[in-house]
Design a protein around this nucleic acid. Sequence first.
DNA 1: ATGGTGGTCCTACCA
Length: 277
Amino acid sequence: MQLKVTSWNINSVRLRIGLVERFLIEQKPDVLCLQEIKCRDAEFPLKDFRKLGYEHIAINGQKGYHGVAIVSRLPIEEINKREFCEKGDARHISVNLAPIKGKPITIHNFYIPAGGDEPDPAINEKFAHKLQFLDELQEWTKTSKLAKDNSILVGDLNIAPLEHDVWSHKALLSVVSHTPKETEKLTKIYQAGPWIDAIRHFIPADQKAYSWWSYRSPNWLESDRGRRLDHIWLSKALASKLTSIDIFKEARGWERPSDHAPISAVLDLSKSDKTKT
DNA sequence: ATGGTGGTCCTACCA
């Protein structure tokens, strides 16, 4: 029994529903976690997903900005949404899948604040918000089962934590998304889980890996100044089930693309729990 | 050092 989970910041699900359909048909994930759907719940294009067999859908929408959703071919038993920083932003949703091979799996989908341009919380309220969001996530990790049992955390975390998650470590140390203030907080959350970084499980830390390329570079492919802002983390119990990952860079080159590529992980849930990785 | 592009929804805000 294979489970393929994908995370994709779609930057308007209504505008790019054609690209989403193409991805679902060609890449066949079982569960697709979307960020920046940029619509209210009632405006989400349910029918387009249902006709492709994705009948189980959880939405935390918002007018114009942000918004996250999870669409699934597999039954969803429970949906939860958590608010952070008391701002009313739609930046989290989680689902409990019906047990697969006896395993109940929880998937958390996050859209962490981008944080604006100036990496100083004293003068940039957006960066202060990002840091506060990370502090609340750290607290939640401590007091909940977030990383326990069979859990998957995905999303646009808007942070590239490792040196080779950005095209130039040195140049980006002062650029929001790669500053020590953020990367240290994210690393603490990651270690506290503890989580397994699915992408880095297969791509060594000394090799470049990106999931996002700015719209502001017309030659994004040749210049390749990317960042790894999107992540798939697995709880320890699921780490031994991980069989492959993919950063589907091709979609960044499709017509009128999102600036993020979809990232996927495939788990083999029929594998023994005792398998070493 | 600067400006580069794109989405939402009407004017500026967010990324």
